[in-house]
Simulated scan of single mutants.
Amino acid sequence: MAVPKRKTSKARRDKRRSPNMKMTAPGLCICPQCHQPKLPHRVCPNCNYYDGKSVINEVTEAPAEA
């Protein structure tokens, strides 16, 4: 069984890990209805449109129980 002869230093260990830790910004596109940035292939959080159609209906208050 292979066993390391010496402890791996923090600099050597972190040098190996650093390229995999980079975060990338999400790709944004512009909503054709309200012209606000949104994530691609998702319903616009501002106007609730997707592919030119209203997808999410506005939530209305339910009548009060008497």
Rank of each mutant, 00 (worst) to 15 (best):
N20R: 02
N20L: 06
M21V: 04
M21G: 06
M21E: 13
M21R: 08
M23Y: 07
M23K: 14
M23N: 09
M23C: 05
T24A: 12
T24D: 11
T24G: 11
T24W: 09
T24V: 14
T24Q: 11
A25S: 11
A25P: 03
A25I: 00
A25L: 09
P26G: 09
P26T: 04
P26D: 11
P26C: 09
G27C: 06
G27H: 12
G27L: 13
G27A: 12
G27S: 10
G27Y: 06
L28V: 06
L28A: 05
C29P: 00
C29D: 06
C29Q: 09
I30Y: 03
I30P: 03
I30S: 13
I30F: 04
C31R: 01
C31N: 03
C31Y: 02
C31K: 00
C31E: 02
P32K: 02
P32M: 08
Q33L: 06
Q33F: 04
Q33N: 14
Q33I: 10
C34V: 01
C34S: 08
C34A: 07
C34F: 05
C34G: 08
C34H: 05
C34D: 09
C34N: 07
C34P: 08
C34E: 07
C34Q: 08
C34W: 07
H35K: 15
H35F: 07
H35P: 00
H35S: 12
Q36D: 05
P37Q: 12
P37R: 08
K38H: 04
K38R: 14
K38Y: 01
L39G: 05
L39V: 07
P40S: 03
P40A: 04
P40F: 01
P40N: 03
P40H: 03
H41V: 02
H41E: 13
H41Y: 07
H41K: 04
R42W: 00
V43H: 07
V43L: 04
C44W: 01
C44E: 02
C44L: 05
C44Q: 01
P45E: 00
P45L: 03
P45I: 00
P45V: 00
P45K: 00
N46E: 02
N46Q: 10
N46L: 02
N46Y: 06
N46M: 05
C47Q: 08
C47M: 03
C47T: 02
N48A: 13
N48W: 07
N48H: 15
N48I: 01
Y49D: 11
Y49M: 06
Y49R: 05
Y49I: 00
Y50Q: 06
D51P: 04
D51I: 08
D51V: 10
D51K: 15
D51Y: 09
D51F: 10
D51S: 13
G52N: 06
G52W: 03
G52H: 02
K53I: 06
K53Q: 13
S54H: 07
V55Y: 07
V55C: 13
V55F: 07
I56E: 08
I56H: 09
I56L: 14
I56D: 10
N57S: 15
E58C: 09
E58I: 09
E58Q: 13
V59K: 14
V59A: 14
V59E: 09
V59W: 09
V59R: 12
V59T: 11
T60V: 15
T60N: 14
E61C: 12
E61H: 11
A62I: 13
A62W: 03
P63K: 02
P63S: 12
A64E: 15
A64Q: 14
E65C: 12
E65F: 14
E65Q: 14
